[in-house]
Amino acid sequence: MKKFLEMFWSFYKIGAFTFGGGYAMIPLIQAEVVDNKKWIDKEEFLDILVVAQSFPGVLAVNSSTFIGYKIAGAPGAIAALLGAVLPSFIIIIVIAAFFMQFRENHYVDLVFRGIAAAVPMLVLIAVVNLSKSVKKNYANLLMVIATIIAITFFKVHPVIVIVISALYGYFYYGKKVD
């Protein structure tokens, strides 16, 4: 029971102090489950993120569920999931109840501007940390450049990029394993 409460509390803290969605949570989740608690190693964390991004739904929900399951099975998945989503749920309920009173408040606007400025940096930190785990070779570099060009200039849907990347991984790395 202690492990489930510890897992719940870890993800609750992450959910309570992360603004900007799942990608902004990645550095906090990694710090908590890989660096602090050592529940999983960095390679397992990267694998979980890849799987979590491949499934429909919110990255934070998917990754917390997979991590919880990896650590303690279905009860662990439920504890981690509840920990990750309850803070947002509570905050949304409170905001919905009082939003109209604060909507035009200058100071509230300033706070949200500050938060909005920090979120892209949290995403950038996640990208930098995840890129450290990716093998450095010309094929992967070419895949990164092709992905950036496809999404930025040709507006290719990210799902198509994920499918093509999965096929690339299967065929490129599949040959090397055999």
Score class of each variant (00 low, 15 high):
Asn137Pro: 03
Glu104Gly: 09
Ala74Lys: 14
Gly169Tyr: 00
Gln53Leu: 07
Val51Pro: 04
Asn105Cys: 08
Lys136Val: 04
Ser131Gly: 09
Phe89Glu: 14
Ala118Ser: 13
Val61Tyr: 01
Ala146Asn: 05
Glu43Val: 03
Asp178Cys: 12
Leu86Pro: 07
Ala97Asp: 15
Glu44Tyr: 06
Gly21Ala: 08
Gly68Ile: 02
Ala118Val: 10
Phe99Asp: 00
Leu142Cys: 15
Leu46Phe: 10
Tyr138Arg: 02
Trp39Ile: 03
Val61Ile: 15
His106Gly: 07
Ile91Lys: 06
Asn129Gly: 08
Asn137Cys: 04
Arg103Trp: 03
Glu43Ser: 13
Tyr173His: 12
Gly76Asp: 10
Tyr170Leu: 14
Leu5Asn: 03
Asp35Ile: 05
Ala84Met: 08
Ile92Glu: 04
Gly22Tyr: 02
Ala24Pro: 05
Phe19Cys: 03
Val159Met: 12
Ala31Leu: 13
Lys42Cys: 00
Lys132Arg: 12
Leu130Pro: 11
Asn62His: 01
Phe171Ile: 12
Lys155Ile: 10
Gly83Phe: 01
Lys136Leu: 15
Lys13Arg: 14
Val85His: 08
Lys176Thr: 02
Ile149His: 09
Val156Trp: 06
Ala84Trp: 00
Met25His: 01
Leu130Ser: 05
Thr65Asp: 03
Phe99Glu: 13
Gln101Ser: 15
Leu46Asn: 00
Val108Asp: 06
Phe171Gln: 11
Ala16Leu: 14
Ser54Val: 05
Glu43Cys: 10
Gln30Leu: 08
Thr65Met: 00
Glu6Ala: 02
Met100Arg: 14
Tyr170Ile: 15
Ala126Lys: 03
Ile95Gln: 05
Ser54Tyr: 01
Arg103Met: 04
Lys132Ser: 02
Ile115Phe: 06
Gly73Ala: 05
Asp178Ala: 13
Met100His: 12
Ile151Lys: 06
Leu141Phe: 14
Asp35Gly: 02
Phe55Tyr: 04
Lys155His: 15
Ile160Ala: 12
Phe66Ala: 12
Leu49Lys: 03
Tyr12Arg: 01
Asp41Leu: 01
His157Tyr: 03
Phe17Asp: 12
Gly114Leu: 11
Ala126Tyr: 11
Gly21Lys: 04
Ile67Cys: 01
Ser165Phe: 09
Ile78Leu: 08
